[in-house]
């Protein structure tokens, strides 16, 4: 597969490591009340859609950026690639 890295352009997927569902960005607050239930869902419940999926890829042998790749799991068509850091910020993550 070819991943169109937002900074580097087309890169062979062999340079990447795959992690899975991009919802792993949405880590719950560990100090919040009732966080155990939230962490249970976070750690164990994943969508596994036959179709469009947002997933995390790490450019391990490249520039070491984590990317959020929107990929159709049926056709492997990739429709969007973003820097995970930008996505995380957009989703309100900070520090």
């Amino acid at each position: 597969m070819i991943i169109h890295h937002p900074l580097l352009g087309p890169c062979d997927a062999q340079e990447f490591t795959y992690m899975g569902d991009a919802r792993l960005i949405d880590r719950p607050d560990g100090m919040a009340e009732g966080s155990d239930a939230a962490f249970h869902d976070y750690a164990y419940l994943r969508e596994n859609p036959a179709g469009e999926h947002r997933e995390l890829w790490f450019h391990e042998q490249g520039d070491r950026s984590w990317l959020v790749v929107t990929r159709n799991t049926l056709t492997h068509e990739i429709t969007q690639v973003e820097l995970a850091r930008d996505v995380a910020r957009k989703q309100g993550r900070s520090r």
Binding site: R27, F58, R64, S65, L83, V87, A88, R89, R95
Partner: peptide, 19 residues
């Protein structure tokens, strides 16, 4: 070594991007 580095980059870029 490789997995820990990957994990730490994940935490830095995806979990706490403004650290």
């Amino acid at each position: 070594a490789v997995a820990v580095y990957r994990h730490m980059e994940f935490a830095r870029q995806c979990l706490w991007p403004d650290m």
